[in-house]
Design a protein around this nucleic acid. Sequence first.
DNA 1: TCTTTATGAATGAACG
DNA 2: CGTTCATTCATAAAGA
Lengths: 221, 221
Amino acid sequence: MQQAEEYLQYQIQNGVCGKVMTDEQVEELRKQIVAYASISEQLAELHKSMSAHHDFTGIRLGNLYCDPISASVGHKITARQRWTPTALQLQILENIYEQGTGTPSKQKIKEIASELAQHGLISETNVYNWFQNRRARSKRKSQPSSVSVNGEAEARPEGVGAKDKRTKQVISDSSDNTGNGAESFYFQNSDTGIDQFIGKMEMSRGYDLYSNLVDQFGMLG
Amino acid sequence: MQQAEEYLQYQIQNGVCGKVMTDEQVEELRKQIVAYASISEQLAELHKSMSAHHDFTGIRLGNLYCDPISASVGHKITARQRWTPTALQLQILENIYEQGTGTPSKQKIKEIASELAQHGLISETNVYNWFQNRRARSKRKSQPSSVSVNGEAEARPEGVGAKDKRTKQVISDSSDNTGNGAESFYFQNSDTGIDQFIGKMEMSRGYDLYSNLVDQFGMLG
DNA sequence: TCTTTATGAATGAACG
DNA sequence: CGTTCATTCATAAAGA
């Protein structure tokens, strides 16, 4: 076996039998390629959509959304692919939710995610968010603090009082932007939009992907 | 040698030593990747130049948000309860954050707040909270597996040794109510927004490319 | 079309 | 500092 090992190394280093990649490297490579394919597709689609109209009304770049309504012939471009629980996943989640004390627990989340993964694509973050939203919305619905008709502020249920602390930061600056809020203009959601992406692309400008690959994987001589 | 040959084959086929690619395959792969990288960059550049002269997105007037779509039928303006950094403020904050000034520092906070105040309403508490959240969430995100798409990686000198690279997103059966059962990958997190694009990889194109790769190179178990 | 509803995700702020 | 809460954003689906 020792001999075989050496032979293998020899083969590899001399390129006799090609390049060897570890599974991790293959995985990494695969993801990169798929990512580029996706990006190309997205950008191509976006560009096509934009080029089709000289009037860009209704197009949002912030989140890569093109409103089919505002744009005369616009395509709908969706950048975000939100996770959606499958029926099975939802059922399991509801089950756990009702049984548990509402506390997710880091470890628990992991377990749940693993279990749900057998029924569809899912991530721990998804599970976390689900519980977060589930709890929050359940709570909100249970105490909607019905607005009383009389002028007096409605009596709020106990516990809600503490809530006021959270919203004490009141911004009453409307006067500032009534007439000339020009300096406040900015693109919505610039942190999740294409602009950010492009910025990143620029950062890697002049950066040879291929070279990077070679360095990373040491594939070519 | 015969034995070594067999051993090599065994190793390869069982993934013990990874996958082997011929030079031709590597070259093919290289071309594909470079092509995609090029396309992505060009399209991004094109798009950038096009969008440079137009404002398609929703705008915020101080703390008022106006949805561009709603605007087509009547401006829907809602008042904000919480402070939200303007684009300029955010940019400055990110800058400061990336420069590794990991520690807030009371005095520093004051300075930053003063500077940011020139670009919109802000308080020291806001700045403090922002850094707190920024750090916490960045750290949290570095823990679960993340896929770096070329230049998207680096930065974020979190200092936290993010080592665990295990894929948390599990691939399983195609029973998904979204309709596209061919999806394979979905990369969570990444605070640059590129994940929005990558999420698109669930689309058939990405999958096909991947399948093609697998077929072509016989990689992946 | 435009509005409403439901819900995954993002995030400022508060808590322990 | 790490978690958790409350609110808001973004969107798909369903109404009207």
